[in-house]
Structures are given as structure tokens and as C-alpha cells.
Design a protein around this nucleic acid. Structure first.
Length: 886
RNA sequence: GCCGGAGUGGUGGAAUCGGUAGACACGACAGACUCAAAAUCUGUUGCCUGCAAGGGUGUGCGAGUUCGAGUCUCGCCUCCGGCACCA
């Protein structure tokens, strides 16, 4: 019986005449990726497939991948990120959702300035050219973006709203100015990014960097600390990322109290989370930037030179925390508020001005760092907590940091740490010497950058009225684009036509701020801008509330803290400004792992190394396929095999996606990326596995072509199948169920693809030419094409009509498993004796313990192991396992 | 240093809620086809032992909980990400 539904739906590029009676479409025998991909992409372009509009009658799905910095070349990390996003987007579309998948450009940043210095190209020109190149590469990969929403953050249409937002924050008291430390290159006379400091020296000048204080604008993210913490509970993010954000916010409850300097002077406030150890404070320490340190430096040249020494240090926390602990006594004492005893005041390089009050009570007995410092400088160590289990310990040998029982603490002796916390806090509060307080590790966000290629800080200063943001109707403050960047400070300060302006209200002469914003500002709200990219009346308009929040946000794990925290903060400020309704920007988050590759190098005499591209190296392997060495193809000489590293320019181990697409086509690269490992793990590049992905597509194509060539197919009559055919059909529907769960819930695309391959292998292993056999074969092939369509959309686009699919495969419904096909009469039960596998038995599905045990005992190998022993316990995991304990 | 994560065959990985360790793929080896090669197809493939049936062993290292641990707990080792101016 003829189906008839296939009539007239031949694939594009079909070369062969129709088979049989003319109703079956035919396919080219060979898989030709270039032809297939050109045709599919032309179809999507012509029909504007991925352009979306708001439709309240349909459920929306907003899938967002972190937009790229336009470096010029797409790298494999991008391809991985965007393939994941495209797979999810196409899957949700097949499930009937109104899917928004936009793309844009995070276009401001340091690399454009570096490129400008190296190549003498203005950053704007360089950036726009890169955007054009990268866009072409993205299109070639077949990602389903709504390009009508594209924007670059370096355009005034975008950043004017960022400037507007800054002005609003200023008016609400969320933006303020104070001094902050930067890395200063004394030779270049510029501020260096942490990345530009290598081993404490400027990367270009080689000069030791210094810490220097300059005025900066700050945003009060700390006002939102409590909400940023609470909001984590309600979002579908990986636990690891939520934990990192919680720890970054670092909410801690403790007490704040004052030490009075002996001999008078302003009291010094300290914060501690361990008031139970307060009697163990044997000295106090302040940061080098603390007022008390400045006071001491003025009086004592030794102190001044110590502080000067500490200044020759980069600003990153990692370097501050790993350096040797050093300090100097200022020669004054402080009065302990509880004992009345005097303890010495030290300046210590490990006390951070930016955390707490910039001063600490040091309890060497019960804090590792205080202990290390005390030991180094011979300061006394007092034990005031003992272990609750009565264990003896030598406090001089190391700090005891756990809670325990209080000792050597007067009236508080014998209390638990928890009880002493409350009692001592009460005592401080009733005597007025201190108070309970909540402290956060989170610091306000410094957004000023002394750079050119960024969004200008929209602030003017006039003599009469001082510093004020530019009024909304005067925005944007446009960044001049036709400039020379030569290193040595921001060019903005040297452009009088930029700097010199007038106060818009009084007409008085005024000067512009010549700093630009941190580029994290742009990436903090682009997710919202995609909903209304052309809005010229505000940051966003009403369309934003249709699309927001983002349903799935995908990007690198390296953004787990900073970018994701800043975007959450901005979103909440926008909500409080009445611009959007949602509380959180990203309802769900998928953090992808990095793309790694092997490295090959030769050391050179002066200690450096030359890295060679894996493409220029031949591997040597032993008979098991293990790598034993490598030689450079060019000269046949050995190169050292390094470790696996993230693909990068410096290690010369990048693989150019454009090359791979040229060789195998976009679908092969997409498939490879998705089948090689789950998205949240690192992915190790393998040429051989790419080849394997290509071979699979060729095999799939052949299977479909052969099936179609064999002529028309009968309708499937599920009630007339042989037991073998029923088993095969169960396999097909188990695969549909598993792949759907893997793609939709688990995002483990690798296991979904493996399941489909397994099913296709089963299909191929059975050469069943009966009418029902062929119908079943078609059901399996159609399921495979639908399940793979999000991953290899071009191939699916070509094969779907050949299998009788109606309409383009992008809008075909995602397959659902037929529950009747999944039913089993019997199951295989694993039989263990004392937890060791001794056999397998078939039992009716749902068999109870007695029945299962009887079946197990009938198995000869099981019986042999049970001989002469009686069962003490029998454990049944229904339909899975039976464990007999003897 | 602090915070977070990872470690399973020759390789990438699978094992989803504590229940068959190694699905699927790559590689390797053997065979078929071929004048030959490529391509394709078939088979074998954790390690030790055994003619076989089978047995032992095995998830970075060391302990523990459990009838049962790759999975949970504790202590280590190694590697990766982040640490506020790379994005």
C-alpha cells in the first residue's frame, strides 16, 4: 500500500530520476556537505526562518549565548558555545516555542587598542572589520540567529543608554566617586590592566609596577548584596556557580568594636566573625592604606619606607595573598576593650583596606594567617578555645580554627564558641563598646578605566557647579572614532574638541571626564537590549517583558562570578527603575568547558620555547596507539609533546573553525562538538574524532538514500509486528524517550547522539525487507533525522523530505515516544551473591522477590555459588537486580 | 593563599536517584572486497588467569559507611577555572 505523502518533495540538488512508480523522492547517493549546506542556508535566508516577533499567544523561549568579543577570528570555544545554543534553540522550536536566539558584538575592549598600537589602525575600523569577518563565519556554521536584532556595543545607539543608566544611578546615589588603587607603569606613564602585569612588571616596558591611587567612579553593588545572595536560591544555575557567587558576596555575621590607641587618638574599628576568640587577640594589624599607617609613616622613616616597599606590588588579590607575610610595628599600643591590656599595633601587608575596616584584631591561636605572622615576628600566641572533644593540642605549633570550648577568657570560660559569640556580642553592646553587624566580602564596582576604546563616562565638571552627569537630552557623549592610539595614556585627554565643552544649563565652560567605562558595563544589559534592539526612547521598551528573563544562558565557566554578578545587579537596578519586571536576568545557566588541544614545542637556550601548531606535527605512536613522540613535518626532527592546554595564540595550538568547515562542512564540526563530551566538561580536540563524525554523516546519508531508492513504503501496522520487529520498535521508542530527555532536560547531547547511533546500528543490523520491516525501518530513520536535526540541521533539512516529512524540518514536531511500544513483558535481572555478579535471569516484568529468587536459584552458576550455604538476606531492586547475602 | 571544579581502558567519554563499570565513538589488531590503494563492510579489543565454563582484579591515592560505592563521608595527591582592570 502506497503512502502517497512523499509525492513531490524531492530534496534540493536531486540528480537521479525518481525510482519505482515515480512517487518516491530520490537523493544523491553521496553526501556533499557544501551543496547541502548552501541549499539549506539559502532556504532559511529566503524564508526569514529565524526572525521572530512577540506573540503573547505562544510560549516563548529566549536562548542566549554569550556574545563574542570581535577579535577577528572565530575560535573553537565560540563554535562550541554557539552550537550548544543553536541545538537548544532548534529543539525548543521543534517543541513549538516562539524562540528568540539573537547575536551581537561585545565590541569595546583592550585588544582593539593593542591592535591599534601594533598595526596603526584606529580601534573602530579594526573592530568593524572584525565584526564583518566573524559574522560571515557564523553564518557559514548555520546558526539560527535573528540577525535583525544584531548590534555592536561600540555604537552610540547602544552606549547612549548605558550613559543614561549611569546618570540615573548617580541621581539615585548608586554611583559615587572615590580613590582606588591601580597598577601604574612608571615608564609608560599609564595604568595597566592586571593582564598587562607579568611577574610584577609592565608587559611592554618591563618596569616594576607600582600601586597608585587615582579617583574612580564606583557603582554601589553592595546595596544589592542581600538580594543578590537571596536571588540565587530561585534560579536554575549549576550549584558550583551559585556557591561561587555566594562565597564571593561573602556574607558574614560578626561584631564590630573599637580599639583605643594607648596615649590617645582616634579609635580604630575592627570587624570579626569570631568574637568568641576576642581574649586571644595579642596584637592588632592595619592595612598599609589605613590612616593610622599614614600617621605612623609621617613620624617614622622606617615605617614610611616599609609602606613604600609594599607599594611596589601589583594590585591583584592573588598576588597579595600569595606573597610573603610582612609587617612592621608602628611603636604604639592599643587598649584591648575587654581585658584593658595593651597590645602592639602592626602594619601588615596581608590586611586588605578593601575588606572590612582595613584593620583586624589578630588572634594567632585561632587564625592561620595571624599565627604565621606571629610566629615570624615572635608575637605571643594565646590559646582561648579548646577542642570540644578534650583533645590536647600545641597552640604554638599551629592555629586551632574550629569552634570549641572557651578558655582563658574570664567570665566566658567554659562556654561553647556559639554561646560565647552571643555573650560577648551582648557584653559589647550593653557596654556600648561594640555592636553586632553583617559584613560582606563583596566590594563596590569600580567602573572607571583610563582607556580610549570604551564608552565615555558621561560626566562634566564646571567651576561653578562641580562634577555632574550629562543630562539625558544631551546624550550620547560620543566617542571620537578617528584617532591615533599610540600607547602612553588615553588619547581622549589630548583631544581638546572632546574635553572642552560647556555646561548645558549655564553655558559656562566645562571639561569632560576622559575615562571610559569597564567593558563589563556593556555586557551587563545586552541580554535585555536584544528584546528591543531598535528602541530609541529608552534602554528597552515593553517588548522586553515578553522575552525576559533569558530562559537559557550559555557561556564559559570563567564568567561564573564577575560578568554574571554584574549582569544580575544591572537587571535589578533596571527593575527598580521600572524598565523591566523580572528579578533575575538568566533563569537557567549552562556553563561550558574550554576547548583544549595538544601542545608541541622546542625549548630555546635562553629558557623560552617555540610552539608548533599541531597541524604541522606528525605523531609517533606505539602499537596500542599511545603517543610516544612527535616530529615536525617540515624538518623531520623531534619536538617535545607538551600538556593539553586551552587553545590559544600563545601556545599556537588553535584549530581554525573556518578550515574545518571548509574541509568537512558545518554539520560535521557541530556534530563533533556535541558528541565528543558533555557541554560542561572540557573538550579535547581530536582530528580523528572529527573524521569519525564525518563518516557517520556519510553513513547516515547512505542509509536514507538506500532506503528511499528501494521504493515506496507501506503504512506501519503496529499490531501486526513479529516479536523481533516489536523489539526493534521498542528500541526506536526507547531512543526517542532517552534522546528527548538528554537534549531537553540534561543537555547531555553526547549521550543523545550515542543513543541515536546505537539505534541506527540496530536498524542496520536487521535486513528486513518485508513490508512491515521496511515501514519500521522508515519509522526509525525518521526518528533519527528528527532527533539529530538540531545538531546537524543542514543534513536533516535535506533528508527529511526524502523520508516523507512534510514541511521544513526546523518546524517538524519533536518526536514523542509511543508508550505502548515501550512496554516489556520480561526483564533481565542481574543476580548477585554477596554483591558479586553471578548470573542473569529473565523474569516477568514486575516480578516479586520470591519469584525472582526462585528464578535466580534455577541458574546453574548461581546454584553452584549457593551450594551448602543459606541466604541470610535477599535484596531485590525491582526489574533490575537481586542480591543474595549468604 | 582563598573560592569552585575535575581525575574511569591505548584515547574522548557512558554508567541520570547507592544497584551489571567501560554504552557510543576514536585508535589498534585481524579478516572480507580490490591487481593495489583509498573508501566500505565484518570480527576482536580493561588487566591477569583458564581449552572452555568460569575465576580473580580494576574508576588518582589512603581510610570509612553499606547487603552493595565510580557515585556518599573523612584525609591526601595532581590538574583546571576564578580572585574584582583579559573578556
Amino acid at each position: 500500500m502506497d503512502h502517497g505523502e512523499n509525492a513531490g518533495t524531492a530534496a534540493a540538488g536531486s540528480a537521479r530520476p525518481p525510482a519505482g512508480n515515480g512517487s518516491a523522492p530520490s537523493l544523491p547517493e553521496r553526501y556533499d556537505p557544501a551543496a547541502v549546506e548552501t541549499a539549506a542556508q539559502a532556504f532559511w535566508d529566503e524564508t526569514d526562518t529565524f526572525r521572530v516577533t512577540e506573540d503573547p499567544s505562544r510560549e516563548k523561549f529566549y536562548c542566549l549565548s554569550m556574545f563574542p568579543y570581535p577579535s577577528g577570528r572565530l575560535h573553537m570555544g565560540h563554535v562550541r558555545n554557539y552550537t550548544i545554543g543553536d541545538v537548544v534553540s532548534r529543539y525548543q522550536r521543534m517543541r513549538g516555542r516562539n524562540v528568540l536566539q539573537p547575536m551581537g558584538w561585545d565590541a569595546f575592549g583592550l585588544p582593539a587598542e593593542n591592535a591599534a598600537i601594533e598595526n596603526r589602525v584606529p580601534p573602530a575600523k579594526w573592530t568593524y572589520r572584525n565584526i564583518a569577518d566573524m559574522k560571515a563565519q557564523l553564518r557559514r556554521l548555520g546558526f539560527g540567529y535573528d540577525w535583525s536584532r544584531e548590534f555592536a556595543t561600540c555604537t552610540p545607539d547602544y552606549y547612549r543608554w548605558e550613559q543614561w543608566m549611569f546618570a540615573r544611578m548617580y541621581e539615585k546615589g548608586l554611583a559615587y566617586k572615590r580613590n582606588a588603587e591601580v597598577n601604574w607603569d612608571p615608564v609608560e606613564g599609564t595604568v595597566l590592566a592586571n593582564e598587562q602585569v607579568i611577574d610584577g612588571r609592565g608587559w611592554r616596558s618591563g618596569a616594576p609596577v607600582e600601586r597608585r591611587e587615582i579617583p574612580h567612579w564606583f557603582l554601589k553593588i553592595t546595596d544589592y548584596a542581600e538580594e543578590l545572595l537571596a536571588g540565587l536560591d530561585g534560579i536554575g544555575w549549576p550549584d558550583a556557580v551559585k556557591t561561587m557567587q555566594r562565597n564571593w558576596i561573602g556574607r558574614s555575621e560578626g561584631v564590630e568594636f573599637d580599639f583605643a590607641p594607648a596615649g590617645g587618638g582616634a579609635p580604630v574599628t575592627v570587624f570579626t566573625t569570631r568574637p568568641d576568640t576576642i581574649f586571644g587577640a595579642t596584637y592588632m594589624a592595619v592595612a598599609t592604606g589605613h590612616p593610622l599607617a599614614a600617621e605612623a609613616a609621617a613620624a617614622d622613616p622606617a615605617v614610611a619606607s616599609f609602606i613604600e616597599e609594599c607599594r611596589r606590588m601589583e594590585t591583584s588579590e592573588a598576588s597579595l595573598e600569595t606573597m610573603d607575610k610582612q609587617g612592621i610595628a608602628i611603636g604604639r599600643n592599643a587598649i584591648h576593650p575587654m581585658t584593658g591590656e595593651e597590645i602592639p599595633i602592626w602594619i601588615a601587608n596581608f590586611v586588605l583596606m578593601s575588606y572590612g575596616t582595613g584593620a583586624i584584631m589578630a588572634v594567632p591561636g585561632h587564625d592561620h594567617r595571624d599565627h604565621e605572622f606571629a610566629t615570624q615576628y615572635g608575637l605571643p600566641v594565646t590559646q582561648v578555645i579548646r577542642p570540644a572533644d578534650g583533645e590536647d593540642l600545641d597552640i604554638a605549633a599551629g592555629a586551632f580554627v574550629e569552634p570549641g570550648i572557651v578558655m582563658n577568657s574570664g567570665q566566658f570560660d567554659g562556654m561553647t564558641s556559639a554561646a560565647a559569640f552571643e555573650a560577648i556580642a551582648d557584653w559589647l553592646e550593653t557596654t556600648g563598646k561594640g555592636r553586632r553587624t553583617v559584613n560582606y566580602r563583596l566590594r563596590d564596582w569600580g567602573v572607571s578605566r583610563q582607556r580610549y576604546w570604551g564608552c565615555p563616562v558621561p560626566v562634566i565638571t564646571s567651576e561653578k557647579r562641580g562634577e555632574r552627569p550629562v543630562p539625558a537630552e544631551r546624550l550620547p557623549v560620543v566617542l571620537p572614532e578617528d584617532v591615533n592610539v599610540s600607547g602612553g595614556g588615553s588619547p581622549l585627554a589630548t583631544l581638546p574638541e572632546f574635553v572642552e565643552t560647556t555646561d548645558p544649563e549655564t553655558g559656562d565652560p566645562a571639561r569632560r571626564d576622559t575615562d571610559t567605562f569597564d567593558t563589563f558595563m556593556e555586557s551587563s544589559w545586552y541580554h535585555a537590549r536584544f528584546a528591543s534592539p531598535d528602541c530609541d526612547t529608552g534602554m528597552v521598551d515593553a517588548r522586553a517583558d515578553y522575552w525576559l528573563p533569558v530562559d537559557l544562558y550559555i557561556g564559559g565557566i570563567e564568567h561564573a562570578i564577575l560578568h554574571l554578578m554584574y549582569a544580575r545587579f544591572f537587571h535589578k537596578v533596571m527593575r527598580d527603575e521600572g524598565l523591566i519586571e523580572s528579578d533575575e536576568p538568566f533563569a537557567n545557566l549552562l556553563t561550558q568547558g574550554m576547548v583544549l588541544n595538544e601542545t608541541f614545542y622546542r625549548g630555546d637556550p635562553n629558557g623560552g620555547a617555540t610552539y608548533y601548531s599541531p597541524m604541522d606535527v606528525d605523531m609517533e605512536r606505539d602499537d596500542k596507539g599511545r603517543v610516544t613522540g612527535a616530529r615536525l613535518t617540515a624538518d623531520g626532527e623531534a619536538v617535545t609533546v607538551g600538556r593539553l592546554e586551552k587553545m590559544s595564540k600563545s601556545k599556537n595550538n588553535g584549530i581554525d573553525p573556518a578550515d574545518m568547515v571548509g574541509r568537512y562542512g558545518a554539520d560535521t564540526i557541530r556534530l563533533y562538538m556535541m558528541m565528543q563530551s558533555p557541554p560542561y566538561q572540557t573538550l579535547e580536540w581530536s582530528d580523528a574524532a572529527v573524521e569519525g563524525a564525518f563518516r557517520f554523516l556519510r553513513r547516515l546519508w547512505r542509509m536514507v538514500a538506500d532506503h528511499v531508492a528501494a521504493g515506496p513504503v507501506a503504512d506501519l501496522a503496529t499490531d501486526r509486528l513479529t516479536p523481533d520487529q516489536r523489539a526493534l520498535r521498542r528500541k526506536i521508542h526507547e531512543t526517542i524517550a532517552k534522546a528527548g530527555d538528554d537534549v531537553g532536560r540534561r543537555y547531555t547531547f553526547n549521550t543523545a547522539i550515542a543513543a541515536v547511533i546505537e539505534m541506527l546500528n540496530a536498524l542496520r543490523a536487521r535486513d528486513d525487507a518485508t513490508p512491515q520491516g521496511r515501514a519500521l525501518h522508515r519509522e526509525g530513520l525518521r526518528a533519527a533525522i528528527l532527533l539529530l536535526a538540531p545538531v546537524v540541521p543542514h543534513v536533516a533539512h535535506a533528508l527529511w523530505p526524502a523520508l516523507g516529512g512534510e514541511g521544513p524540518v526546523v518546524d517538524a514536531g519533536w518526536p514523542e515516544a509511543d508508550p505502548t511500544a515501550l512496554q516489556r513483558d520480561t526483564v533481565t535481572l542481574v543476580v548477585q551473591i554477596n554483591g558479586k555478579l553471578r548470573g542473569r535471569v529473565n523474569v516477568p516484568a514486575g516480578a516479586e522477590r520470591d519469584e525472582a529468587e526462585a528464578a535466580a536459584r534455577a541458574n546453574p552458576n548461581v546454584a553452584r555459588h549457593l551450594e551448602g550455604r543459606s541466604a541470610r538476606k535477599v535484596i531485590l531492586v525491582p526489574d533490575r537486580l537481586l542480591n543474595i547475602v549468604v
